[in-house]
């Protein structure tokens, strides 16, 4: 198998996503679940960047020498996915923060972080 950087990254991203999901589905501690989700997010981000990576190209930053506005499309990597990932990271942080706030609130009430404690609502 011919390993390349982007393939490694792809595999890594997927693995992280799977591990994150696995943690999110199996861990009982709220903080652990949140943690697992943030790993899942990181994995997703790596995956996206890896998908957009074109071997041999540079970052889409116009520095005037290697990358100029004219050859941007040939030399540099498509900047759009990166912008997307950037946004996703920020949003992911927001979500994680909010989840943590929830964890705190829930913990204040039941003095526990076990997700099985919060099943009053059902059916």
């Amino acid at each position: 198998m011919n390993l390349t950087i982007d393939k490694i990254a792809l595999l890594l991203g997927m693995s992280l996503m799977l591990i994150g999901l696995w943690g999110g589905f199996t861990q009982k501690n709220l903080l652990k679940i949140i943690l697992s989700f943030s790993i899942f997010d990181t994995g997703l981000n790596i995956l996206i960047v890896a998908l957009g990576y074109l071997p041999g190209r540079t970052a889409p930053i116009i520095d005037g020498s290697a990358v100029t506005p004219e050859n941007l499309a040939l030399v540099a990597i498509d900047p759009v996915p990166q912008a997307l990932v950037l946004t996703a990271i920020v949003i992911g942080f927001g979500t994680t923060a909010l989840l943590l706030a929830y964890a705190l609130k829930l913990n204040q009430h039941k003095k526990s972080l076990d997700i099985n404690q919060f099943t009053d609502l059902k059916w």
Partner: peptide, 11 residues
């Protein structure tokens, strides 16, 4: 607190 539990699941 019920709403909090629900919100957590939602998120």
């Amino acid at each position: 607190h019920h709403a909090h539990a629900a919100g957590f699941k939602y998120l």
